[in-house]
Design a protein around this nucleic acid. Structure first.
Lengths: 253, 253
DNA sequence: GAGTGGTCTAGACCACGGT
DNA sequence: CCGTGGTCTAGACCACTCG
């Protein structure tokens, strides 16, 4: 039989579905518009709900959709550019940074953190929690680890705990001369506490930005910031002004 | 009825499962070791296979596991640091960069790309495909868009097409003075062609690094690089030497 | 209470990799 | 060929939001 099936690769249904939906989003829906519910959509396309959900999950991962339990599925606006790597190095908490200090504690850091800080075990490490807003939405939650040796001028009198304490720690940090900072970005999933702060479910995809602040030849502070991967595009360099988007975008009425 | 249920939040099964598996990976498995198959694991934990898969998917997303159809599920090594933002700016294709040119064409770029390049419609844009290896594995696939006006010295004689043509285009690019580059990182899912190159299935999570190369006050080139999100940690700054990992790591025998 | 997305089940078949 | 992970189904119930 001389019939050679050339490249008959049966495309998975959910993949094809994703393509169809993606094109529909470009041409027939406005940002903020509510899609039909999952059961209706599944019926309309003649697939099981789980299959439809697989397509929706991908589109949400790509920032095209936003789903909220009890509410519905809406068309997401283009991702917002969030500046992460301002060229001029600066300590966290420097004037005009985008973060808001939330709390401060002196918990023992995780082992992986201690290894990077190269602290003796038992050395006190200040742990500052901060959050970052952009366009009225929470976009990131951060844990800052600062060995006590990096803030020698800190007095117990400054503030016992809470946001005031956090600001005091960061204020002390500015006295050190920052020699450099090294960043890394990787994919992660939101821990329960971060998820709550980011208004997402636990396990939601996040971009984890790890920054080591170097001063006096050692790591003087470590920041682990988790950004919502669905709504954020992390920008490095001069600006985050130019937008890349997927196609025609309209505004919901 | 004075019983106030305080914070009785029933944790989803797959989430608890993920935690259990994660701890088991830290303490009982070596890197490269093969886990029992999904049907056995599901039976062992008393859940449906779909539920177990939900947990495995999360762990794979976090770079803890690697799954391959027809083979099995293995314990992944810690993510490799991949340098992306070397501080000294340089054109793509400069001496010693990590990329290997694969091909070159003159296809019309997607609308979103044309918008960023601010090219007239119909202006010729060279499209170079490159790939990047690290530690013997493919880690990234890139599409480079270079308007013909950025490489005026390029002659048709240099090479008609293919890798040689790609190198010729990049060689011409070095003649321009690079004024700056702006990068953005966001989460995406692999297109079919990228997935093939990265040895993953279509839809696999990737980190999309978009770089605009600025020269003579305009965008002279645009790079869209997709990195495997499961195996890569993108590093910016001086080095990617320090490793963050999740716990005890051992080597498979 | 009605409607939404989130979780979970117990099956089935398919595509792929190695033997 | 067999065993693996990948896809798909047709249900069920739960958690949440909102009117």
């Amino acid at each position: 039989m001389g019939s050679t099936q050339l490249e008959t690769v049966p495309e998975p249904k959910y993949w094809h579905l994703k393509t169809v939906l993606s094109e529909a989003l470009d041409s027939e829906f406005a940002v903020g518009e509510i899609l039909p519910n999952e059961r209706d959509l599944a019926a309309r396309f003649g697939v099981a709900r789980a299959t439809l959900r697989q397509a929706l999950e991908q589109l949400e991962l790509e920032g095209r959709l936003q789903r909220r339990r009890g509410v519905g599925t809406t068309v997401a606006p283009p991702r917002m550019g969030v500046a992460v790597g301002t060229e001029q190095h600066a300590w966290p908490g420097a004037a005009g940074d985008a973060w808001q200090s939330a709390d401060c504690a002196q918990a023992a850091p995780p082992a992986a953190v201690a290894a990077i800080l190269e602290t003796d075990r038992n050395e006190v490490v200040h742990t500052v929690r901060r959050s970052r807003m952009s366009h009225g939405q929470p976009v990131a939650a951060e844990l800052l680890y600062i060995p006590a040796s990096s803030v020698p001028g800190l007095t117990a009198i400054d503030a016992p705990s809470g946001p005031a304490r956090a600001r005091a720690v960061l204020r002390e940090l500015q006295h050190l001369e920052l020699e450099g900072q090294e960043r890394a970005v990787e994919l992660g999933s939101a821990r329960a506490d971060d998820a709550k702060e980011l208004d997402r479910l636990p396990g939601a995809p996040v971009l984890v930005v790890t920054t080591r602040f170097v001063a006096a030849g050692r790591v003087a502070a470590l920041s682990v910031a988790t950004y919502r991967a669905d709504t954020c595009r992390l920008t490095f360099g001069d600006s985050g002004s130019v937008e890349i988007h997927h196609g025609p975008e309209r505004q919901a009425s």
